[in-house]
Simulated scan of single mutants.
Amino acid sequence: MSANRERVIGSIRREVLGHILITNESHAPQVLSTYQQHCNEHRPHRARNQLPPDIHRSPPLRFVRDGSPWGSRP
């Protein structure tokens, strides 16, 4: 669980705080809300074959050598 939190905090630091100056305490929730909306609606995700998390479209399954969508390692 802590690794997931660290990844999210690192993403926020790199993608938000490195580019935007937070001017006061009321500005921070606005900036984080905008970033959350961007991540949840527009930003491409590797797990979705670089598609944004749009609920109306799902990524096609990618089959590997053994025919299963998950694949197995030898």
Rank of each mutant, 00 (worst) to 15 (best):
R46N: 06
A3T: 15
S11M: 10
L17W: 00
P44V: 01
H45G: 12
V16T: 10
R5K: 11
S26R: 11
S26T: 09
V64I: 15
E15T: 09
P53E: 08
S72R: 15
R14L: 04
V8F: 03
R13V: 02
Q37G: 02
D66S: 01
L32W: 12
L17H: 01
H56C: 05
E15F: 15
Q30L: 11
R5W: 08
S58F: 13
A28M: 14
I22F: 03
C39M: 06
T23W: 15
W70I: 02
D54P: 02
Q37C: 09
I12D: 04
C39K: 09
R46F: 04
R73Y: 15
N40V: 05
S11Y: 09
S58L: 06
R14E: 07
S33P: 06
S68F: 00
F63W: 08
M1H: 03
G18P: 02
R43N: 04
R46A: 04
E15Q: 15
P52H: 11
L17G: 00
S2R: 07
H38E: 08
N40H: 09
Q37Y: 04
S33N: 09
S26V: 13
I9R: 14
V16K: 01
S68W: 00
I20Y: 15
S72D: 08
R57F: 14
D54R: 11
A3D: 13
H42Q: 11
I9Q: 14
H56M: 05
Q36G: 13
L17P: 01
H42Y: 14
Q30N: 10
A3C: 15
A47W: 03
V8A: 07
N24W: 02
E15G: 06
A28P: 12
H42L: 08
F63C: 12
R48I: 01
L21D: 09
A3L: 08
I9E: 12
S72T: 06
R7D: 07
G10I: 00
R7E: 05
M1F: 10
I9N: 14
M1T: 11
P60M: 09
